[in-house]
Design a protein around this nucleic acid. Sequence first.
DNA 1: TCTGGGGTCCTAGGACCC
DNA 2: TCTGGGGTCCTAGGACCC
Length: 421
Amino acid sequence: MFALVDVNSFYASCETVFRPDLRGRPVIVLSNNDGCVIARNALAKKAQIPMGAPFFKTRDAIRQHNVAVFSSNYALYADMSSRVMETLERLAPAVDIYSIDEAFLDITNIENCISLYDFGKEVQKTIWKETHLSVGVGIAPTKTLAKLANFAAKTWKGTGGVLDLSQTVRQRKLMALVPVEEVWGVGRRISKKLNMLGITTALQLADCPSALIRKHFSVVLERTVRELCGESCLAFEESVPTKQQIICSRSFGERITDYQDMREAICNYAVRAAEKLRGEHQYCRYVSAFVKTSPHDPKVPYYSNHAGIKLLTPTQDSRDILAAAVRCLEQIWKPGYRYQKGGVMLGDFFSQGVAQLNLFDEYQPKRNSEQLMATLDEIHKKGTGKVWFAGQGIQRGWSMKREMLSPAYTTRFNELVKAKV
DNA sequence: TCTGGGGTCCTAGGACCC
DNA sequence: TCTGGGGTCCTAGGACCC
């Protein structure tokens, strides 16, 4: 039996926890670069500010409803997330963290001690007490059904935010009411296709013969159908699976037109990606870079390209990764465009740097690479000094916009909340 | 003027091998 | 006119998720 716990309007809630003065006001949080709306509290939803809407298109509504606007503050959200997860670890025998704001709990056999619904209420109450964040809890025999229960717990206020969907009768009753596009794993494309086949509710999808699904779609959707029927196909995963790839990319605060600026940006992404790679204790053998202009401006031609390099031997050395990323950029850079975004991707991971060298390779591994990188990471972590590669530049005029950033309430001493006595 | 970032998995098709 | 069969590996692209 699974319970899916997720925090309501997570980013927006994190902002309001430390700002009681915002009670009664709509709150939204913007994506990186203050680009578009990625989180809304209940009042902002009521004010009909659409999810994903470009910020500049919502300005009228924001003024009209006196909406509080925040740039995203990931340091704050990550810290609040770990507090929630720690609480869950204490309440449940096993926790499978699915995203920054949600986790599956393994609650098999818990019914021997407490009813499933009461357990859900207990989780809700404890999280609120310890973090002042409100959560929804969906309980069911499969992950997909638990997601569905969670959706229903949020949608129908009468549930009080907790829904026990352990019985088949209740599963079918609910599925008959839920549109198929709300099912986990059914996105825009697939729901459109399903609708054309006359399948509009979750129940109709659940009752679909698997041969039909296999014929028109893939094994992924077939698995979803089985899960809706109560057959658990998605396993509980307590340990974090090792990453297959690492991406560092950002839209630029201002469009880039100059090669030197782009080179600087790519160098920064490469260095950051290398740090993440070492954080995973991995070595990569594939490095790629990409650049693109904005797809939204019909007046200027669109350009998007990427190039990748397979290294001779896996590395975790920032210098190798940086050099490779710059070589990729040289292949794809074209002057005359107004670039909106760029990035670096690492892939083909190994757990050690030593790979079979070819007999005639002239490659010589860098000496003391591991120690040097460890030192670099240490300096970075402590914040006691600043060291960077020349290619990363100093001015960084292209770096992202965050004009409405809240303080790091929980992770920096000089930004703690001040209480008036 | 201004439209996020970071992931996963599956499939189809081509290259290549015997 | 006739032009094998079966397998693996890799990559690009498409779908999904939060």
